[in-house]
């Protein structure tokens, strides 16, 4: 049974709601009315009830928006029992009721934004969706308005692994309230140790040492990306890497991907069928011996993992290395050392 709040709100827009459902079902015969009822009961209803508590006048608008959105997401297999991304369900189950006061002002905007963000985070194997959700709920109270909350969500998505958003997320991060900035990038313990200006300078380096702000620069293998497509990875054949146009790229015989990596994560983003024109061989600034000894930007390290390397490319403090008989690309970086 759904609550009388939602039941009455839907009854007031019965024709519209029925038409919307009929329309959606018409083109998606798999759409299960019972499952939609369950979503209305278990996901939409608690949110609408919470909105009723926060701002009763917003119930009708919110009910309509959440009805449409949940239907859309169910039809797209993003919500419901056959959902591809459990994180979306978590957003509806936990985040939306908790953010009812914000949702009352712009139900569709906020619910759609968070649902889509959950989809993006679910699509990146290296991203930490649950951490994003936890952090958002934890810090939401410090956001003065809806825009600020959405900005926080963007920054948290970057921090939770969506490295390809780094450049623009960094700009958004600078617009956050000052007291939120340390927590948003996961270094609340730095607050008081360094100033926000210093934090800004450090974050401009893709590889600050998040554990110890005063540590000396050193080399470390920070991530691996790619993998064999048969096991859910990206590559069909053994990949190679290259640098071009200020960016690192990985390619196999079928496709080319841009590599994005920083202290928060690493992702591959599809570039096109062919790699861009660029520099196939690394510049002299980096050396990698057959024993896996790396020298980059004055730092040295030995990584047995990289002994049988096949190709490498460097961009600033980031080195991408492919090794023989592996579909993975290893990301080695100069960690720490202040601003870039």
């Amino acid at each position: 049974m759904i609550s009388s709040v939602l039941a009455e709100a839907l009854a007031r827009q019965r024709e519209r709601c029925n038409a919307r459902f009929a329309f959606t079902r018409r083109l998606n015969r798999r759409l299960d009315p019972d499952e939609f009822k369950r979503i209305l009961r278990e996901r939409v209803d608690p949110v609408v009830q919470a909105i009723q508590q926060a701002e009763a006048a917003a119930v009708d608008q919110a009910a309509a928006a959440l009805y449409d959105l949940s239907l859309e997401l169910l039809a797209a297999d993003c919500l419901g029992k056959s959902a591809r991304y459990p994180l979306v369900d978590q957003v509806w189950q936990r985040a939306l009721p908790a953010l009812a006061d914000r949702l009352a002002a712009a139900p569709r905007r906020l619910a759609a934004a968070l649902s889509n963000a959950a989809c993006h985070l679910s699509l990146e194997s290296g991203a930490n969706g649950p951490l994003w959700l936890e952090s958002l709920l934890q810090l939401a109270g410090q956001c003065p308005g809806l825009d600020s909350l959405l900005d926080l969500g963007k920054v948290l998505a970057w921090r939770c692994g969506l490295a390809h958003f780094r450049e623009t997320a960094l700009t958004v991060w600078q617009s956050l309230p000052e007291e939120l900035r340390f927590a948003a990038v996961g270094v609340p313990h730095w607050q008081g140790q360094i100033s926000t200006d210093e934090l800004t300078a450090r974050l401009h380096n893709p590889w600050p040492d998040l554990e110890n702000p005063h540590a000396e620069p050193h080399l470390a293998v920070m991530a691996r990306v790619g993998g064999f497509r048969g096991f859910g990875g990206k590559f069909l054949t053994l990949p190679r890497v290259m640098a071009a146009d200020g960016r690192l790229y990985a390619y196999d015989q079928e496709c080319c991907w841009s590599i994005h990596a920083d202290c928060f994560g690493a992702t591959l983003q599809r570039y096109g069928p062919d790699p861009p024109p660029g520099l196939p061989s690394p510049p002299a600034a980096v050396t990698l011996s057959r024993q896996g000894a790396v020298e980059l930007a004055g730092c040295r390290g030995v990584f047995p993992l990289l002994r049988e390397w096949m190709s490498m490319a460097v961009m600033g403090p980031t080195l991408a290395v492919c090794v023989d008989r592996s579909f993975w690309i290893y990301i080695v970086a100069v960690i720490g050392g202040g601003g870039a």
């Binding site: 928006a65 959105l69 859309e72 997401l73 797209a76 993003c78 712009a106 569709r108 905007r109 619910a111 759609a112 934004a113 649902s115 889509n116 963000a117 989809c119 993006h120 959405l150 969500g153 963007k154 920054v155 998505a157 970057w158 969506l162 390809h164 958003f165 450049e167 623009t168 997320a169 958004v172 146009d245 960016r247 841009s258 994005h260 983003q269 570039y271 861009p276």
Partner: peptide, 22 residues
């Protein structure tokens, strides 16, 4: 376009459509 730009605003684009004005 030759080089794809990544904008964190794209985080909120996806299967759920936002309001028309968005």
């Amino acid at each position: 376009s030759a080089r794809r730009q990544f904008d964190v605003a794209d985080l909120y684009q996806g299967p759920a459509t936002a309001a028309a004005e968005e």
